[in-house]
Design a binder for these strands. Structure first.
Lengths: 364, 364
DNA sequence: ATGAAAGCGCTAACAC
DNA sequence: GTGTTAGCGCTTTCAT
């Protein structure tokens, strides 16, 4: 037996990489059999444990010479660790799940990109799903991600009260994205929309506007959106007339429709606050089509400050959400609970980016 | 023993879901132990195999009464199949990997969304990664996805000749996205950019333009981009003077820079073809800033026809890539080889969407 | 510093 | 129609 073992474990060339079927028939040639850690171990003349130690640099030390041999075997055989097996053993897939309404929307596109970066940095991959605004689809995705055993869930829900009970019960941490208010029992992050709207309206008032309307997306998450609240309160505080709210989808189209109604209204405002860039872009189109000039005829301020808003004509003055900070915070809440603040709800401040559409800078 | 077995396998209430540590100490209470199929089987008084049959509706038939009992147990215990274990056993993760340069770019945002839909439809989840234009990052992601054992890879590479050898050797199918030409040994899809540019330039010529310049992104994939080729050839064929090429990044910023150079040039064209919407949007800004009117002073046609281009001012006439068809085709090539055409390289036709920027419609 | 071996939770061939 | 069971490839404890 000793001779056999010598052969098996020696450094002899690897004569037959192809595995053979259980019956001795050669296997289907197209998908060649995966190289496992056993192959590597045999080739390098070590045990499978040592291969693990080398691959993971953990938990035992390995002699330099052995390590070299193992690495060489890995390279030569083209070995790739099997993530599924590892996940099963460790109970961790090193994947995060993300559910957003629409990755095509610039705000969510930028947010999800930032989340991917933050997750990657910590060694996690991102399973990305779109709910397309549908509660049913959202639930399906959450369920699916749960079954796939993601190590954490990031959810920009379209439900006012997403029921994560079933989910978190399973021990998977979750954080709610894009939230206005705390939701008891959940971890969430959001932005101070009220203050953001306040700043925007104050700014418009500073430009001597007194008729300031609002183009508002239908926020499925909160009965009264923070942007609407801040706008309304600021107007009231300053003793200005109530503005009118044009409601529509959170999209260019929704903004365009609202803009057309606004243009046609008998009492046209001199300034408009839009609840997202995409809507503002739609409003802009309606205004242009009506031959109205921004900011001369109507001033415009929007939310989000995505790249698109910078290249609108005129460039949009906008309330920026700190997307990267939010993404990082969300991922860290998920992966390092206790390190960052452990509040239920974390609110981020906004920042107003002054560009052309508010009237600060004369048109070129 | 028989009594014990009765108890074990009977329908008695489930007294103690909490597992206990190996030492008899109660386990850390926070992450409660996962419910496995064994728990379900015990609770329902069946074998684990039957639970599998019910969950997968396969491969054996199950008596209706048994099925009901199993489903009830699943519901009550909150059982979720463990994807990692399933993947290990089946050798399939039911996940697809996608690598794109930038999910924030409208074109890739729309493409990846469409791919997600197509994948979902077939029961696959999407692992999304951004290379951010970096070859090193792209390779890292490909390697990582390979290790995670995705069932297929969709790659919009930033390399002219991505080396998928290592990857496909492992038996994972891959398809290259956004490709101009076939790459020997690879499956790829793309659009007929030459024809698209041809159509655009012909259209501009139809508007009596003779000076047609090109704002071109640096295409890392092909030495001469199809758009450039089509533009150049059409100009030559029609006996028109060679236009000038303004090169820059595939971004709003890149288009803006190019636009500024174009505006400042001594021989300003009367029409411009832009190689992407984002660039066209940048050009538009430069033109606006220079007080130039589109299409009166300069006509503009772009590639992609993303939503953003529809809401630019003026709305951009653009060459549309059939994103949904391409996404579906890519996923099917991956998952059902042989069903759809098995060509190495599939080329999709483009379609020109006439809007305002070319001069077809008078400005409102 | 290295190796043997026990599972992680699931599927499906096979036996009944 | 249902049960038994052998792994899938990996990590890690414990022994050497």
């Amino acid at each position: 037996m000793s001779g056999f073992r010598e052969f098996e474990r020696g450094h002899s060339t690897w004569g037959n990489l192809e595995k053979v079927g259980p019956m001795g028939m050669s296997a289907d040639p197209s998908p060649r059999p995966a190289v496992t850690r056993a192959d590597v171990a045999r080739y390098a003349g070590v045990s499978t444990a040592v291969v693990s130690y080398v691959v993971n640099d953990r938990p035992n030390k390995v002699a330099p010479a052995t390590e070299t041999r193992v690495r060489e075997a890995i390279r030569l055989l083209g070995y790739r660790p099997n993530g599924a097996a590892r996940a099963l053993k460790l109970g961790s897939t090193e994947m995060l799940g993300l559910v957003i309404p629409d990755s095509t929307n610039p705000f969510f596109a930028e947010l999800s990109h930032a989340i991917e970066d933050a997750a990657n940095e910590l060694g996690y991959a991102l399973l990305l799903t779109n709910s397309n605004g549908s509660i049913a689809t959202e639930r399906k995705h959450v369920q699916n991600l749960s079954s796939r055993r993601v190590d954490g869930l990031l959810l920009a829900s379209v439900e006012p009260h997403p029921d994560l009970g079933r989910f978190t019960e399973s021990g998977i941490p979750a954080v709610l994205l894009n939230r206005n208010e705390p939701l008891p029992g959940s971890t969430s992050i959001g932005v101070d929309l009220v203050q953001g709207a306040r700043t925007a309206v104050e700014h418009l008032i500073g430009h001597d506007h007194t008729d300031i309307d609002l183009v508002m997306g239908a926020n499925p998450v909160a009965p009264i959106d923070g942007r609407e609240k801040g706008w309304r309160h600021t107007l009231a505080e300053r003793g200005l007339p109530e503005g009118v709210v044009y409601r529509g989808e959170f999209s260019r189209r929704g903004g365009y429709d609202a803009g057309q109604r606004l243009v046609a209204s008998r009492r046209r405002p001199t300034a408009v606050l839009a609840s997202s860039d995409t809507q503002a872009v739609g409003v802009l189109r309606a205004l242009h089509e009506a031959g109205l000039h921004v900011p001369q005829d109507i001033a415009l301020v929007s939310f989000d400050a995505s790249q698109e808003s910078e290249y609108a004509w005129p460039a949009l003055t906008a309330v920026r959400q700190p997307i990267h900070e939010m993404a990082r915070a969300a991922v860290e809440k998920l992966l390092k609970p206790g390190e960052s603040g452990d509040e239920e709800h974390t609110v981020f401040p906004t920042e107003m980016l002054i560009r052309r559409s508010c009237g600060c800078t004369p048109a070129p």
